[in-house]
Design a binder for these strands. Sequence first.
DNA 1: TCTGGGGTCCTTTTCCTT
DNA 2: TCTGAAGGAAAAGGACCC
Length: 454
Amino acid sequence: MSSSTPEPDSFEAVFGLPLKSAITQTGVGAPMPTKGPMRRIAHLDMDAFYASVELLRYPQLKGLPVVIGGGKKSLAKQLNGVDPKDWDAQTPLDQFPQLKDYAGRGVITTATYAARHFGVGSAMGLMKAAQLCPQAYLLPVDFDQYRHYSKRFKDIILEICPVMQNIGVDEVYLDFTHVPGGQRENGLSMAKLIQRSIFQDTGLTCSIGVAPNKLLAKMASEFNKPNGISILLESDLESRIWPLPCKKVNGIGPKADSKLKSLGIETIGDLAQRSLDELMGHFGQKYGAWLYAVSKGQDDRPLETQSDPVSISRETTFERNLLAAKDRSELGEIFTRLCTQLSLDLQKKQLMGKTIGVKIKFDNFKVVTRDQTLDMALDQAVDIRHAASQCLKRIDLSRRFRLLGVRVSSLVPKGQVSTPQAQSSHGDDVSSEDPKRVLTQREIQPSLLDDAEN
DNA sequence: TCTGGGGTCCTTTTCCTT
DNA sequence: TCTGAAGGAAAAGGACCC
């Protein structure tokens, strides 16, 4: 490739040396800025990621309103008897279920731009979405597929810019500062190259913001969606950031925003007019000081290129609200399934955890959690279930609830911990058995809700 | 809007120990 | 044995994000 004339927009054509050399010989022969390196942080956000991945598979849905979600795996199957696994690019449109055929619980995970025109959006109940856009096609969520494309676009980025922080499946921060060519046109060249490389390989588009820090880069990536690039300099703060509403800041959610509004603070510019003391008085030392810094565009957080998980959990919302006293066996099965899934998740990641907790969401949406830290880390379903049911005993389950969750935290890498097998807390020597082993009725029956009621 | 599932981080409360 | 202060760890709740 590099022996012939490079393609017009290739790394070599833009930066004057082959990509591989640029990476391995950082700074050697690479175009470097004439002044000292300015911090150039990029935030890259894939455009409507899940929906775009689905459209790659089902091009016949392009341009049509499509919503993704519904929660239940068997969703599409229930709707018209066709397993989504059997769908492909040849599947005729009338095989795809539509929202008008749907009745039940669940929310939308995401929607195509065509569906968003009808006012349908993320986190909206499916029934509400069906009112707004009954003709929208409904697809189940396929995380394996999204993870596959996630890895693909991140691998492409890493070849060009090795300093990357993962933010979920469809978002990353990048540090261009010391990457050869990263300073060119204040980061525009690098952003263009990355955007183009991802599109060529995957057919997916993304939006990129480049700025002096993560805070501003994140906001900048939204300026020009979809498939846009925005370059933000420190001097742009007043003209481009201050006019924005406060809730555009990553970290200012609905609660903080409404409190800010009650103080007459609508925009980031308004925020910048307030003193540090005033903000700390209203929002506390830490958050107040953070708000103050945010309004000035200040953020010196480094990129975190590695991170270990803090907790792992599984939770599920029931088809209908359940009552511990009445729905014992159903709840017992759900509880066992959650613990089993959690155990497999832990084992897949080679982790064990010392703190086990449960979460209940009552029919009035009030959430209650209980957890317990044990002497030893564990990862087996039966052990998790036993510890979690101890936690459940401490919750008053006399009213109906809609969600049950199980969580493991205080995680440690497996192999670095002594296992609880030698002294299994419940006496049954089951911990050392096959993790995929199905729990026996005897283990399930003396179940959560028996225990929990007394 | 009528509210999923998987996380992180922060603050406050509670409990234990000295 | 009681009381109170102080500090730390664990537990609980909540805001926020994707």
